[in-house]
């Protein structure tokens, strides 16, 4: 299995995203930006998109595969919907390539609040994002 490699959480941090998003005034700009983030997230190899890696979301499919190197957690992550994929990139900026302890102590609710995407992360949207966050948090608990 190839190693997951992506800029989010590495060269693009959660702080970078917050700074970029602060520039935008309209929803169109914000969504364009989110969609572009999704395009920078490498696609997960097709053979990894299996039933077991599927995070159940009602409307779009989300796959997650963690890799723990003894120090940090890294992720393959993908979705069949552009906006969801962009939002996954946002989540990755906070969680990818981080130690379990860093993941545990990151205040994701505060982060989401700052980028004004709570609406899309609400469980009622059924897009699987909350489930991804929960899954990563519990992985962090396991490896901590």
């Amino acid at each position: 299995m190839s190693e997951p490699s992506q800029p989010f959480g590495d060269t693009i941090t959660s702080q970078d995203l917050l700074e970029d998003l602060a520039f935008f005034d309209t929803w169109e700009e914000r969504y364009k930006y989110i969609i572009d983030l999704g395009k920078q997230l490498p696609s997960m190899p097709e053979e990894l998109k299996t039933e077991e890696r599927l995070v159940r979301g009602c409307q779009s499919q989300v796959w997650l595969e963690p890799v723990f190197d003894g120090q940090n957690l890294r992720f393959w992550v993908d979705s069949d919907a552009f906006i969801v994929k962009g939002l996954l990139a946002v989540v990755m900026s906070a969680y990818n390539h981080q130690s379990p302890g860093a993941i545990q102590s990151f205040d994701i609710e505060h982060f989401f609040g700052q980028i004004d995407l709570l609406k899309h992360l609400s469980p009622t949207r059924g897009n699987g994002l909350r489930a991804v966050v929960k899954r990563i948090q519990s992985l962090a608990d396991t490896y901590a």
């Binding site: 169109e28 969504y31 009602c58 409307q59 069949d80 919907a81 906006i83 969801v84 897009n127």
Partner: peptide, 20 residues
């Protein structure tokens, strides 16, 4: 496009549709 993306963006414009 994915239906979910279409529905999300339409929602931003006040248009309520169902996707899925």
């Amino acid at each position: 496009t994915h239906p979910h993306d279409v529905g999300t963006l339409l929602d931003q414009m006040g248009v309520a549709v169902r996707t899925g």
